[in-house]
Amino acid sequence: MLPLEKPQQVHRALAWQGEIPTYNIYTFGIAGERFFRELKEHGRFLGTRCPACHLLYVPPRIYCERCFASLEEWVEVPGRGTVFTFTLAYYDLDGRRLEHPDILALVRLEGAHGGVLHRLGEVEPGQVAIGMPVEAVLKPPQERRGSILDILYFRPTRR
């Protein structure tokens, strides 16, 4: 059975159907607020550096998870990096088959520790490879809202 297959014949069991009708609104936190404001307003990527552990966190954090120092050194990083790993998703969230697969990639930004999960665009599935240099394509400034979706996708770096 596919993991996305829905439970069948629910009507045959004596069951009470219902939902937990809550939803969530998340704030981005101290580090997230600054990161996404910078992306929205200036189209720039920011990270925080831990001088002791020689790590550059992108997305940024206010503390180093390894030595627990408060991180106060903010640095700009370029919106480009390499594909660390990727997958081709042939089903959507409701289990429907997609004609063109979604290309999802973990992109490691240049010089950074960690990475950004996003879609790849302007590339055919067969051309994607681990290690491929990619760059972020942002929405036009007036459409940006301060969200991960302000990045449309990453595409192969144009030289």
Binding site: G29, I30, G32, R61, I62
Partner: peptide, 12 residues
């Protein structure tokens, strides 16, 4: 009542 910090940041 409502914090700007993320749960991780509060824990930190």
């Amino acid at each position: 009542r409502r914090a700007l910090e993320t749960p991780k940041e509060l824990a930190f």
